[in-house]
């Protein structure tokens, strides 16, 4: 049996950079698209992000990262999700990430999409809507 509910998204900023304007713009756009956005603030460790995502039972994690540490932090988040039975959660990333790194993250580290500067919020919203796997419980 499937039941409808708003799509729930965790918007998080892993690592140490202190710029969350982009994350806030995305959070607001997702809200206006009818999604429930859990915003956790700056300087999150991969452990904190994965724990929050599992407690909140989100459908999607949106990671905003500008510090350049994405090749360390994003694979770690994916690894923790796999370890804790959360690999069905859609993970997307945004920020300053080179094409080569983006390809590596998508191919080998469970990141479904990378949205760089200039990506439109509509594209992000459409991508999430198309890709989330709805919760199914039978009973």
């Amino acid at each position: 049996m499937q039941h409808e509910r708003p799509i729930r998204v965790l918007v998080a900023k892993p690592g140490l950079d202190g710029h969350d304007r982009g994350a806030k713009v995305i959070a607001r756009a997702l809200r206006d698209a009818g999604m429930e956005v859990i915003y956790t603030g700056l300087q999150q460790t991969p452990q904190m992000i994965v724990e929050a995502a599992l407690q909140e039972d989100v459908d999607c994690i949106g990671l905003s990262i500008l510090s350049g540490a994405h090749m360390t932090l994003l694979p770690k988040i994916h690894q923790l999700l796999v370890e804790q039975e959360g690999e069905d959660i859609l993970v997307i990333a945004g920020g300053i990430i080179s094409d080569a790194d983006a390809a590596e993250l998508k191919n080998n580290h469970g990141i479904a999409a990378v949205f760089g500067p200039g990506a439109s919020t509509h594209d992000i919203i459409d991508f999430i809507r198309a890709q989330v796997r709805p919760t199914t419980v039978e009973g």
Binding site: E36, V37, T40, M48, E51
Partner: peptide, 20 residues
């Protein structure tokens, strides 16, 4: 939001110390 049906849930920001 009464208009979009969406929401921003920000209470966890103040609860970081409970993580882990």
């Amino acid at each position: 939001s009464p208009f979009s049906g969406g929401a921003i849930l920000g209470d966890r920001i103040r609860m970081q110390a409970l993580g882990g």
